[in-house]
């Protein structure tokens, strides 16, 4: 009996509590930078595409929503086309974890409704952004040992000159 009256009183007090509801379209909720929303392709600090078309994201994707084609230019790989089918994507973020070059990133944006299902297939020009995303200073070719035009072996950041493996001296 006391319990019932106490319950009634406590419920009544909730009349004067602040609402927990966020009236969504008017006030947007805060989404942290690591929120797993719309997927983008970022560029390195020089403005070049980061993606090296290694296909790891497509391999990691549990729903097979990523599809790309490798192309080659000046000894660098790049995606000739890069499609993400967002009508299949489950925003698991595995592609971001698999990516060796921080190219593919998930962003705090989820408002991507469409009236036509076909419009949910994003092409490369839809996915590419002009900036570096979450990793502002990272450039894959600057730290990798791969020789590309303008940068030979041993010239990358924190990379020692290559060892002549045919020499006898240590």
């Amino acid at each position: 009996m006391i319990g019932i009256i106490r319950t009634l009183w406590l419920t009544f007090l909730h009349l004067f509590h602040k609402n927990d509801t966020v009236p969504y379209p008017e006030t947007k909720p805060y989404l942290s930078p690591r929120y797993r929303g719309r997927i983008i392709l970022s560029r390195d600090p020089n403005g070049e595409e980061r993606c090296v078309a290694c296909n790891l994201c497509a391999a990691a994707c549990p729903v097979d929503c990523i599809s790309l084609q490798k192309g080659e230019k000046d000894g660098r790989w790049y995606p000739e086309f890069f499609q993400i089918n967002f009508s299949r994507c489950i925003f698991c973020g595995f592609c971001e974890e698999a990516c060796p070059t921080y190219a593919i990133q998930l962003t705090p944006d989820f408002e991507m409704s469409e009236y036509v299902r076909q419009n949910l297939v994003y092409e490369k020009q839809d996915l590419l952004i002009s900036g570096t995303g979450k990793y502002p200073d990272y450039s894959f070719y600057n730290v990798s040992g791969l020789a590309i035009p303008g940068k030979d072996k041993g010239e990358a950041e924190r990379e020692a000159a290559p060892i002549d493996i045919h020499a006898l001296l240590p």
Partner: peptide, 10 residues
């Protein structure tokens, strides 16, 4: 409406 207020929602 009132049920909403009792449950901290509008």
């Amino acid at each position: 409406r009132l049920l909403g207020f009792f449950q901290d929602r509008p």
